[in-house]
Design a protein around this nucleic acid. Sequence first.
DNA 1: CTCGATGCAAACGGTTTGCATAATC
DNA 2: GATTATGCAAACCGTTTGCATCGAG
Lengths: 162, 162
Amino acid sequence: MEPEQKRREMEQALRTAGYRITAQRKAILDYLVSTLEHPGAYRIFEEVKKVQPGLSLATVYNTLQVLTRNGLIKMLTFRDDNRYEANLSFHINLICASCGKIQDFEAETHMSPEEVREQIGFEVMSYRMEYHGLCSECKSGADRKGKNKKLSSGGLSPRKES
Amino acid sequence: MEPEQKRREMEQALRTAGYRITAQRKAILDYLVSTLEHPGAYRIFEEVKKVQPGLSLATVYNTLQVLTRNGLIKMLTFRDDNRYEANLSFHINLICASCGKIQDFEAETHMSPEEVREQIGFEVMSYRMEYHGLCSECKSGADRKGKNKKLSSGGLSPRKES
DNA sequence: CTCGATGCAAACGGTTTGCATAATC
DNA sequence: GATTATGCAAACCGTTTGCATCGAG
């Protein structure tokens, strides 16, 4: 789906849910649907500020909360900061413990939400699927240096954006 | 594996890595390998304090950090507090958005770490697999009341332990 | 015109840190 | 005996909140 269209759908969903469409929210949506970056709140703040100079961090948090609570985006919690993604199609996030980059990876899985419900009565409404490790760039970098750098936090959170 | 044996293996791993085995750490390990609860730091503090009255929260955090960084336990980050689990075998966590309970669910998946590496060069070292939704108890409870309670955070974090 | 959203700054709370003391190896 | 771990309290920092003002509907 084109970003443009997706943003309009999200706006419509917000309107329908009784929220107002402000310039700030438009701009935040614009950025979220156009990036593959899985940005954190502060990164979103920085980027959207380029378009909406008056923007405050509180507004970013407010909007992210609204979007998350209404299922329009997904929040990925980490030790250092949380990341957000607008890609709601089923995929696995590949999270590099070295550079913090997150890439999406479409994949099948045997245990679909339907199967889980049928087998044990757990009603799946959302999911989180991640592999933590080294992206191909960081892997070859580590190989070249011949280092065995210890991964922070057992690879459970991406490195803090600097 | 029996908890007793598992605890000793973890102790050995710590010793080998150059860490000292204190009464506090022993007690924390004891608790972690014996529970299915996926407790948060504070819960661990409360529980282990029953056995080690002098225990401080800082020690709990210190130990959890050591264990996590050495891959002996897994940290699951959430908005409100983080949870820890000693079960490192491949499984999916079923997280109830209503009561916050987390249960393990062994499941197959098509995309094994090996396949990920082969297909796109991402070197998997760890993973996180979750389904968020309603456990069977909460589901039937909601049905009985006929309510349509809105899920906080889009079901992305378990409810805070109260 | 009304009520929700924004921006600012202060408050919050889980986690980390500094340091003197205690305990492991 | 040397060095790491503990406990206490203060610091940290991402996120939330209170409130006066602004602006969408």
